[in-house]
Computed example of a mutant assay.
Amino acid sequence: MEITVTGRKKTVTDRFRRHLEEKLEKIPQLAPRTSRVDVVLTHESNPRLTKTSERVEITCYVKRTVVRAEGAADEEYAALDLVMTKLTERLRRLGDKKRISHTGKHRLPSVAEATFGLTTEPLISEEPSANGAGRTAEEAVDEALGTEGNSPIELREKVHASEPMTVGQALNEMELVGHDFYLFEDVDSGHPSVVYRRRGWSYGVLRLDTGERNTQDEEGAAERVG
Protein backbone atom coordinates (compact mmCIF):
# COMPACT_ATOMS: atom_id res chain seq x y z
CA MET A 1 0.00 0.00 0.00
CA GLU A 2 1.50 3.32 -1.09
CA ILE A 3 1.27 6.17 1.43
CA THR A 4 1.73 9.84 0.51
CA VAL A 5 1.86 12.49 3.23
CA THR A 6 1.64 16.20 2.34
CA GLY A 7 1.87 19.18 4.66
CA ARG A 8 0.18 22.47 3.78
CA LYS A 9 1.41 25.51 5.67
CA LYS A 10 3.18 23.15 8.09
CA THR A 11 6.04 20.68 8.42
CA VAL A 12 5.26 17.01 9.11
CA THR A 13 7.58 15.82 11.88
CA ASP A 14 9.13 12.36 11.88
CA ARG A 15 7.42 11.59 15.19
CA PHE A 16 3.98 12.37 13.81
CA ARG A 17 4.72 10.48 10.59
CA ARG A 18 5.57 7.33 12.58
CA HIS A 19 2.39 7.72 14.63
CA LEU A 20 0.39 8.19 11.43
CA GLU A 21 1.82 5.06 9.83
CA GLU A 22 0.87 3.04 12.92
CA LYS A 23 -2.71 4.31 12.62
CA LEU A 24 -2.84 3.54 8.89
CA GLU A 25 -1.93 -0.11 9.53
CA LYS A 26 -5.65 -0.69 10.22
CA ILE A 27 -6.61 0.15 6.63
CA PRO A 28 -5.40 -3.08 4.90
CA GLN A 29 -7.24 -5.08 7.56
CA LEU A 30 -10.52 -3.38 6.70
CA ALA A 31 -9.91 -2.94 2.96
CA PRO A 32 -7.24 -5.36 1.64
CA ARG A 33 -7.53 -3.98 -1.90
CA THR A 34 -6.41 -0.50 -0.92
CA SER A 35 -3.64 0.50 -3.33
CA ARG A 36 -2.90 4.06 -2.20
CA VAL A 37 -3.53 6.35 0.73
CA ASP A 38 -3.12 10.14 0.46
CA VAL A 39 -2.81 12.12 3.68
CA VAL A 40 -2.95 15.93 3.74
CA LEU A 41 -2.20 17.90 6.90
CA THR A 42 -3.16 21.56 6.94
CA HIS A 43 -2.47 24.27 9.51
CA GLU A 44 -4.93 27.16 9.64
CA SER A 45 -3.31 30.36 10.94
CA ASN A 46 -6.59 32.29 11.23
CA PRO A 47 -6.97 33.10 14.97
CA ARG A 48 -10.75 32.77 14.62
CA LEU A 49 -10.29 29.07 13.84
CA THR A 50 -8.07 28.12 16.77
CA LYS A 51 -10.26 25.16 17.78
CA THR A 52 -9.95 23.66 14.28
CA SER A 53 -6.52 24.96 13.32
CA GLU A 54 -5.12 21.48 12.60
CA ARG A 55 -6.87 19.54 9.81
CA VAL A 56 -6.14 16.01 8.60
CA GLU A 57 -7.60 14.61 5.36
CA ILE A 58 -7.17 10.95 4.40
CA THR A 59 -8.19 9.54 1.01
CA CYS A 60 -8.08 5.79 0.33
CA TYR A 61 -8.17 4.31 -3.16
CA VAL A 62 -9.79 0.89 -2.88
CA LYS A 63 -9.77 -0.59 -6.37
CA ARG A 64 -12.26 1.70 -8.22
CA THR A 65 -13.76 3.20 -5.06
CA VAL A 66 -12.58 6.31 -3.24
CA VAL A 67 -13.12 6.53 0.52
CA ARG A 68 -12.35 9.85 2.18
CA ALA A 69 -12.60 11.42 5.62
CA GLU A 70 -11.34 14.53 7.36
CA GLY A 71 -11.11 15.82 10.89
CA ALA A 72 -10.10 19.09 12.53
CA ALA A 73 -9.04 19.96 16.08
CA ASP A 74 -6.72 22.28 17.94
CA GLU A 75 -3.96 19.66 17.89
CA GLU A 76 -2.81 17.37 15.07
CA TYR A 77 -2.94 14.13 17.08
CA ALA A 78 -6.53 14.82 18.12
CA ALA A 79 -7.44 15.63 14.51
CA LEU A 80 -5.92 12.33 13.41
CA ASP A 81 -7.99 10.40 15.95
CA LEU A 82 -11.15 12.09 14.66
CA VAL A 83 -10.44 11.35 11.01
CA MET A 84 -9.49 7.73 11.70
CA THR A 85 -12.80 7.16 13.49
CA LYS A 86 -14.72 8.40 10.45
CA LEU A 87 -12.49 6.57 7.98
CA THR A 88 -12.70 3.16 9.67
CA GLU A 89 -16.48 3.46 9.85
CA ARG A 90 -16.69 4.16 6.11
CA LEU A 91 -14.27 1.34 5.26
CA ARG A 92 -16.36 -1.09 7.32
CA ARG A 93 -19.47 0.13 5.50
CA LEU A 94 -17.73 -0.49 2.18
CA GLY A 95 -16.78 -4.01 3.27
CA ASP A 96 -20.33 -4.76 4.41
CA LYS A 97 -21.67 -3.51 1.09
CA LYS A 98 -19.35 -5.83 -0.87
CA ARG A 99 -20.27 -8.84 1.26
CA ILE A 100 -23.96 -8.19 0.61
CA SER A 101 -23.36 -7.89 -3.13
CA HIS A 102 -21.79 -11.37 -3.16
CA THR A 103 -24.79 -13.12 -1.60
CA GLY A 104 -26.55 -13.48 -4.93
CA LYS A 105 -29.04 -10.69 -4.38
CA HIS A 106 -28.78 -8.54 -7.51
CA ARG A 107 -31.77 -6.29 -6.82
CA LEU A 108 -30.71 -2.65 -6.68
CA PRO A 109 -31.50 -0.97 -3.34
CA SER A 110 -34.14 1.73 -3.09
CA VAL A 111 -33.21 5.20 -1.87
CA ALA A 112 -34.65 4.38 1.57
CA GLU A 113 -32.56 1.20 1.77
CA ALA A 114 -29.42 2.88 0.50
CA THR A 115 -29.67 5.70 3.06
CA PHE A 116 -30.81 3.66 6.06
CA GLY A 117 -28.50 4.17 9.02
CA LEU A 118 -26.46 6.95 7.42
CA THR A 119 -25.55 9.83 9.67
CA THR A 120 -26.42 13.35 8.65
CA GLU A 121 -24.75 16.62 9.55
CA PRO A 122 -26.00 20.13 8.75
CA LEU A 123 -24.02 22.02 6.12
CA ILE A 124 -23.66 25.10 8.34
CA SER A 125 -24.66 25.15 11.99
CA GLU A 126 -25.69 28.41 13.58
CA GLU A 127 -23.50 29.24 16.57
CA PRO A 128 -23.95 32.11 19.01
CA SER A 129 -21.56 35.02 18.57
CA ALA A 130 -19.94 37.00 21.35
CA ASN A 131 -22.98 39.28 21.74
CA GLY A 132 -25.38 36.31 21.84
CA ALA A 133 -26.77 36.82 18.33
CA GLY A 134 -26.67 34.03 15.75
CA ARG A 135 -24.20 34.26 12.89
CA THR A 136 -25.42 34.86 9.38
CA ALA A 137 -24.80 32.25 6.69
CA GLU A 138 -22.26 34.58 5.05
CA GLU A 139 -20.33 34.94 8.31
CA ALA A 140 -20.31 31.19 8.80
CA VAL A 141 -18.98 30.64 5.28
CA ASP A 142 -16.31 33.32 5.80
CA GLU A 143 -15.16 31.56 8.96
CA ALA A 144 -15.16 28.14 7.33
CA LEU A 145 -13.07 29.46 4.45
CA GLY A 146 -10.84 31.63 6.60
CA THR A 147 -11.88 34.85 4.87
CA GLU A 148 -13.37 38.16 5.93
CA GLY A 149 -15.86 40.26 4.03
CA ASN A 150 -14.91 40.50 0.36
CA SER A 151 -11.52 38.80 0.77
CA PRO A 152 -10.50 36.54 -2.11
CA ILE A 153 -11.14 32.86 -1.50
CA GLU A 154 -9.38 29.75 -2.73
CA LEU A 155 -11.13 27.80 -5.48
CA ARG A 156 -10.26 24.12 -5.84
CA GLU A 157 -11.00 22.15 -8.99
CA LYS A 158 -11.36 18.37 -9.03
CA VAL A 159 -11.96 16.01 -11.94
CA HIS A 160 -12.92 12.42 -11.20
CA ALA A 161 -13.77 9.49 -13.42
CA SER A 162 -17.12 7.83 -12.85
CA GLU A 163 -19.31 5.19 -14.42
CA PRO A 164 -23.10 5.60 -14.85
CA MET A 165 -24.91 4.61 -11.67
CA THR A 166 -28.26 4.62 -9.90
CA VAL A 167 -29.36 7.13 -7.28
CA GLY A 168 -28.82 4.58 -4.53
CA GLN A 169 -25.27 3.90 -5.69
CA ALA A 170 -24.55 7.63 -5.86
CA LEU A 171 -25.77 8.08 -2.28
CA ASN A 172 -23.43 5.34 -1.13
CA GLU A 173 -20.51 6.96 -2.96
CA MET A 174 -21.38 10.33 -1.41
CA GLU A 175 -21.23 8.87 2.09
CA LEU A 176 -17.93 7.09 1.41
CA VAL A 177 -16.19 10.35 0.51
CA GLY A 178 -17.91 12.28 3.30
CA HIS A 179 -19.38 14.99 1.11
CA ASP A 180 -22.79 16.65 1.28
CA PHE A 181 -23.33 16.17 -2.46
CA TYR A 182 -22.18 13.84 -5.25
CA LEU A 183 -22.10 14.44 -9.01
CA PHE A 184 -22.84 11.43 -11.22
CA GLU A 185 -24.36 10.27 -14.52
CA ASP A 186 -27.78 8.68 -14.08
CA VAL A 187 -27.71 5.16 -15.54
CA ASP A 188 -31.38 5.33 -16.61
CA SER A 189 -31.61 8.78 -18.17
CA GLY A 190 -27.97 9.46 -19.02
CA HIS A 191 -28.34 12.97 -17.56
CA PRO A 192 -25.74 14.63 -15.32
CA SER A 193 -27.24 14.50 -11.81
CA VAL A 194 -26.40 15.45 -8.24
CA VAL A 195 -27.57 13.81 -5.03
CA TYR A 196 -27.32 15.97 -1.93
CA ARG A 197 -28.09 15.89 1.78
CA ARG A 198 -30.95 18.02 3.02
CA ARG A 199 -31.81 18.82 6.61
CA GLY A 200 -32.80 15.94 8.83
CA TRP A 201 -32.95 12.49 7.23
CA SER A 202 -33.95 13.59 3.75
CA TYR A 203 -31.97 13.60 0.52
CA GLY A 204 -32.49 15.32 -2.82
CA VAL A 205 -31.62 14.75 -6.47
CA LEU A 206 -30.91 17.41 -9.11
CA ARG A 207 -30.86 16.39 -12.77
CA LEU A 208 -29.59 18.46 -15.70
CA ASP A 209 -31.69 17.97 -18.83
CA THR A 210 -29.85 19.31 -21.89
CA GLY A 211 -31.95 17.50 -24.47
CA GLU A 212 -34.47 20.29 -25.07
CA ARG A 213 -31.76 22.93 -25.43
CA ASN A 214 -29.79 20.79 -27.88
CA THR A 215 -32.93 20.17 -29.93
CA GLN A 216 -33.68 23.90 -30.09
CA ASP A 217 -30.10 24.65 -31.13
CA GLU A 218 -30.30 22.09 -33.93
CA GLU A 219 -33.65 23.46 -35.14
CA GLY A 220 -32.30 27.04 -35.08
CA ALA A 221 -29.24 26.00 -37.06
CA ALA A 222 -31.41 24.24 -39.63
CA GLU A 223 -33.55 27.36 -40.06
CA ARG A 224 -30.48 29.55 -40.57
CA VAL A 225 -29.13 27.16 -43.17
CA GLY A 226 -32.47 27.01 -44.93
Results as ranks from 00 to 15, higher is better:
34 T>E: 10
211 G>S: 11
150 N>T: 15
209 D>P: 08
34 T>V: 15
33 R>Y: 07
63 K>Y: 09
31 A>W: 07
112 A>K: 14
115 T>E: 06
15 R>T: 10
19 H>V: 01
30 L>R: 07
172 N>G: 14
58 I>G: 08
139 E>R: 04
56 V>M: 11
6 T>L: 09
5 V>F: 04
206 L>W: 08
2 E>T: 06
12 V>N: 03
147 T>I: 14
63 K>P: 01
154 E>P: 00
160 H>S: 11
220 G>M: 14
7 G>W: 05
82 L>S: 02
35 S>A: 15
103 T>M: 13
40 V>Q: 12
159 V>D: 03
199 R>L: 13
54 E>L: 03
188 D>A: 11
89 E>D: 15
202 S>M: 04
141 V>Q: 10
218 E>S: 11
11 T>Q: 08
93 R>V: 00
102 H>N: 06
31 A>L: 08
133 A>C: 04
45 S>D: 14
180 D>V: 06
189 S>K: 03
89 E>K: 15
113 E>L: 03
14 D>M: 03
152 P>V: 06
170 A>Q: 05
108 L>Y: 00
156 R>F: 10
179 H>W: 13
175 E>L: 04
1 M>H: 07
113 E>Q: 11
186 D>A: 03
130 A>I: 08
212 E>I: 03
97 K>T: 15
155 L>C: 09
123 L>V: 05
205 V>T: 08
136 T>M: 04
15 R>I: 02
109 P>N: 07
70 E>K: 08
69 A>P: 02
202 S>E: 15
119 T>K: 13
221 A>W: 09
194 V>C: 14
214 N>I: 06
45 S>F: 04
26 K>L: 15
155 L>K: 07
156 R>L: 14
26 K>V: 11
1 M>G: 08
17 R>P: 00
92 R>T: 10
98 K>F: 13
79 A>N: 05
164 P>D: 10
125 S>R: 12
203 Y>S: 03
130 A>Y: 03
171 L>S: 01
219 E>F: 06
58 I>R: 05
124 I>Q: 12
72 A>L: 01
80 L>I: 01
226 G>Y: 12
56 V>S: 13
125 S>T: 12
77 Y>C: 05
214 N>H: 12
42 T>F: 07
225 V>P: 00
207 R>Q: 15
53 S>W: 00
50 T>I: 14
44 E>K: 07
161 A>K: 10
180 D>C: 04
110 S>F: 04
69 A>V: 05
163 E>V: 06
166 T>P: 06
176 L>G: 02
171 L>N: 05
1 M>N: 08
